[in-house]
Design a protein around this nucleic acid. Structure first.
Length: 229
DNA sequence: CACCAGGCAAGTA
DNA sequence: TACTTGCATGGT
């Protein structure tokens, strides 16, 4: 694999290929339904997926994983059910607000696909408890819109290899990926999941480690920063 | 024991 | 705009 990249799209695709070759297909959130995926996106905020998935399972056990059931549930009861996800009081409220919004503006998913992605994203961001990453996760994984999700792993992996600043803004990174890659949902889905997987295993601490599959993608040496450091 | 995990909102300067 | 803090469980 050549490390001389003539363009940003080429560099981004090379990184994808390396990660895919190393970690393989990730299969994030396949066929679980809009509600389960959106609830998962909220429950996993600043929490590992293991704890979040337990909370989901708890809701499933009592057949409460529907917008209407969550709206009907007492907030304290909901909080106790999702305890394993941490921040359970906050997250119970977030789920309540989200499901309320879903009913008021979209008749519980029924009207949501008629809206354009930009408008939907703005709406999601206006809901209390939904920030950029959660909004984009819902758009990409639940609604299958071609929206690239940025998270702390993405920023860290890239900055460890001097491909961006460790403080690079969310919107800048998102634009970078979306303007330099084909806008395909399946690619964005796999790419983000691979970055998370890579981030879990490598480059947690400075500097980047030699074992990382992206070792060699060094923007400093090659002058191929994706954005100003 | 310390540290971290698929963030966000609200407050401060 | 750019930082800081509260929120909280469970794994390593």
């Amino acid at each position: 694999m050549s490390l001389q990249h003539s363009s940003t799209p080429e560099l981004l695709m090379d990184i994808f290929s390396i990660l895919f070759g190393h970690f393989g297909h990730q299969g994030w959130w396949p066929g679980q339904g809009e509600t389960e995926i959106s609830v998962g996106a909220i429950l996993t905020q600043n929490t590992n997926w293991n704890n979040a998935s337990r909370a989901i399972q708890e809701l499933k056990n009592y057949c409460l994983l529907t917008p209407q059931k969550i709206r009907e549930l007492d907030e304290e009861k909901l909080a106790s059910l999702i305890q394993s996800a941490g921040y359970y009081n906050q997250k119970a409220r977030k789920l309540k607000y989200f499901m309320q919004w879903l009913k008021e503006y979209h008749d519980d998913w029924r009207l949501i696909r008629k809206e354009n992605t930009i408008g939907l994203r703005r709406e999601l961001l206006s809901v209390w408890g939904i920030g950029k990453e959660t909004a984009d996760s819902i758009l990409l994984y639940a609604l299958e819109k071609p929206v690239f999700v940025i998270d702390t792993y993405t920023r860290r992996i890239l900055s460890r290899h001097y491909l961006c600043s460790p403080k690079e803004k969310y919107d800048n990174l998102q634009t970078l990926f979306m303007e330099n890659l084909p806008q395909e949902t399946s690619l964005y889905n796999e790419y983000h999941a691979l970055l998370v997987q890579a981030g879990k295993h490598y480059c947690r601490k400075k500097p980047a480690c030699e074992k990382c599959p992206l070792w060699g993608f060094n923007g400093k040496n090659q002058g191929s920063q994706l954005s100003p450091p």
